[in-house]
Design a binder for these strands. Structure first.
Lengths: 206, 206
DNA sequence: GTCTATAGGAGGATAGAC
DNA sequence: GTCTATCCTCCTATAGAC
């Protein structure tokens, strides 16, 4: 009884890990159930036994990925930390996370584009909306206080996000254009944690 | 004779335009030859008559897209324009281009990831390598002259590219998170041309 | 050059034994 | 729960008439 349950969870877990790898690398359309089965060390039939269909399995993976991509920023945004410190935390958090999940952003952005108006993504986001507004307000207050230069919160935050995430999305081109290999790329991204924060601060501080 | 040739080119052109739309929206794996045929107003067999296979047709589209995505920046980079002016030109050029080709970056980045080490992309890039080095040197010279703050050319250029391109890659999420529709999004991107340039200048100028 | 009809194969899904 | 064998649909590609 206990054995069966353990075995069950192990198999399910193996499938999920394999599916995650394959879907994140190849996308929904490019992924093959056979590849997932091979990587999990089982056969196709078992995939359907556990998850009924490719679409259902994909849904599980996508939702987990989407949640990871829009993570628990609520607390960070809404906290009473100084703005500049929030920015630093944000950049460090994202670059660290993407170093460990390099395929995540392209996967999520790509699959989102196809569905266009994903109800689950909206659900994921809902709870965070107020925190973002709070952060935007904080930016405007700092501007009023005169501690930072005027800039629409939209553009400031989009700049921060862009500089943190885009290099991972464009990884193949960055590697080609700057003639770097994987270890060098990783090192450069590590550097960016400080460089990007400094770049932002230099830009907005008076 | 002339009629036949015109007709021929028209059909080929119609196919290319249809294929471009479908491939850019759905990717290689997601695209259906039937959809391309429908959009071109012809039938599947003609697609193969003109382009022999799906892969060949895709290649034509991808190469055109890749060339557009890494456009004629050689002249800009290598010109004797002041650095700050080059940056301005670059940002304006990219945002303008992406306003008209919204699917381009995600398509190229996505398909590049799958092949990993695309020989054609390398070919496309080759000619531009020297111009990039020239631009990097220019950055270093400005730093030595003391006109801008120290920053590795890699990070400065990656920041510029990131802020220009990422919003288009992340369009669905940006729209969701900031609750904007398509016309508002377009307007915000128009704003960004000035905002991003200003943001960069504020950051690097002493 | 353009069409209809169909071959051929890949891949998701199910049946049924163990 | 897990496997093998098989079904069936979808889609690329080709044959052949016009």
């Amino acid at each position: 009884m206990v054995d069966e349950k353990d075995k069950d969870q192990n198999t399910e877990q193996k499938i999920l890990e394999a599916a995650k790898e394959v879907f994140l690398e190849r996308g929904l359309d490019g992924a093959r159930m056979q590849d997932i089965a091979d990587k999990a060390g089982i056969n196709k039939a078992l995939l359907h036994y556990y998850f009924r269909s490719k679409d259902r399995l994909f849904d599980v993976i996508f939702r987990e990925a989407a949640a990871r991509f829009l993570p628990k920023l609520g607390e960070l945004f809404a906290s009473d930390m100084p703005l500049l410190e929030k920015i630093e935390k944000f950049v460090h958090f994202y670059i660290d996370m993407l170093q460990q999940n390099p395929h995540l952003p392209l996967f999520v952005l790509n699959e989102m584009q196809k569905v266009d108006g994903d109800e689950f993504m909206e659900f994921i986001w809902q709870g965070k909306q107020p925190a973002l507004k709070a952060m935007a307000t904080q930016v405007e207050e700092e501007i009023k206080k005169g501690t930072i230069k005027p800039i629409k919160p939209f553009h400031l935050l989009l700049n921060i996000v862009s500089m943190s995430i885009f290099p991972f999305v464009a990884r193949p081109i960055v590697k080609l254009v700057w003639e770097v290999d994987d270890p060098q790329f990783k090192e450069l991204m590590e550097e960016r944690k400080k460089v990007v924060v400094q770049f932002i601060l230099d830009s907005i501080r008076k």
